[in-house]
Write a protein that binds this DNA or RNA. Structure first.
Length: 269
DNA sequence: CGGGCGTCCTGTTCGC
DNA sequence: TGCGAACAGGACGCCC
């Protein structure tokens, strides 16, 4: 579930509580997430958090020896807990800090991850990631280079994290609607005008969603347990069968690469 | 080698 | 009401 804005919202929520704090204990209740949590994670007990940042949908917490890599998968979330409360069924790990604050990770579907990477090397998961959509590295020229000769549909391309990170199913649908591009269009057929519009739309939608504190469909909560409010602003996702806000045409639901895709057959040609 | 899809899980919703 | 099937925001990795 969490796409870039939800991860960014989570990061901003937890960072001030844990930055420069010493990790006093790491409690693993369920090591079987998408990948097994490495036992060596415990080596970070006693270390201090030097830096915390986001790369794509990964949250990276650096100590002097290690970088903790956290991914929220489909249903993950993290909260800062100030007074101890019993762990619930899907609370898979806690990281406890010297200021008594607890970073608690919850993930019913367990598609998320907690891994480590040595400070002086780049983890395989991060090595081949594409550009960050909110930087100048993601621009019309860059995207055009990656659309060239590609017969795959444009939606699959913008969701490919080797090209550009952080764009998940919801925001892919939304960005294509804003740019008025049909999600099934072969990537190589986009005009330079459309490429330009698409880049602008992706940046626009992600920034707007971050401002709103992310999108809550079912269970996203920020680090204080509050939902995001962006769902009220979604133009197409989850609105199949309802009228397009632009032209009133009934929105269409199709599946692309096994993912629900909603678009307006009239606005998006 | 690009692209399609199966897979890891649990919870919720929908249809019969 | 109850049950099972379908589906859900990610993304790696296998297969063709």
């Amino acid at each position: 579930m969490p796409e870039l804005p939800e991860v960014e919202t989570t990061l901003r929520g937890i960072a001030p509580h844990i930055l420069k704090q010493q990790i006093t204990q790491i409690i693993i209740r369920q090591p079987k997430l998408r990948w097994l949590i490495p036992k060596t994670i415990k080596q970070n007990e006693g270390e201090t958090v030097l830096k915390i940042k986001r790369r794509g949908k990964y949250i990276l917490i650096s100590t002097s020896s290690d970088t903790l890599i956290i991914h929220l998968g489909m249903s993950g979330r993290m909260q800062i807990i100030t007074n101890e409360k019993p762990a619930a069924k899907h609370d898979h790990f806690d990281i406890i800090f010297s200021n008594k604050k607890i970073l608690r990770y919850t993930d019913p579907r367990r598609f998320g991850a907690l891994l480590t990477s040595h400070a002086n090397s780049t983890h395989a998961l991060l090595k081949n990631l594409g550009v960050e959509p909110l930087t100048n590295d993601f621009n019309a020229y860059y995207l055009a280079q990656h659309l060239k000769n590609k017969s795959t549909n444009i939606k699959t391309v913008i969701m490919n994290s080797k090209i550009v990170v952080g764009v998940g199913n919801i925001y892919a649908c939304e960005a294509l609607h804003i740019a008025r591009i049909n999600p099934t269009m072969p990537a190589k057929k986009l005009s330079s005008l459309q490429i330009n519009e698409l880049v602008k739309a992706i940046k626009f939608i992600l920034k707007k969603a971050i401002k709103a504190g992310g999108t809550t469909l079912k269970d996203f909560r920020d680090s204080e347990g509050k939902p995001g409010y962006f769902i009220q602003k979604l133009q197409v996702y989850g609105r199949e069968g309802l009228p397009c806000y632009e032209c009133e045409t009934t929105l269409t639901l199709i599946r692309i690469a096994n993912r629900s895709t909603v678009f307006c057959s009239s606005c998006q040609k």
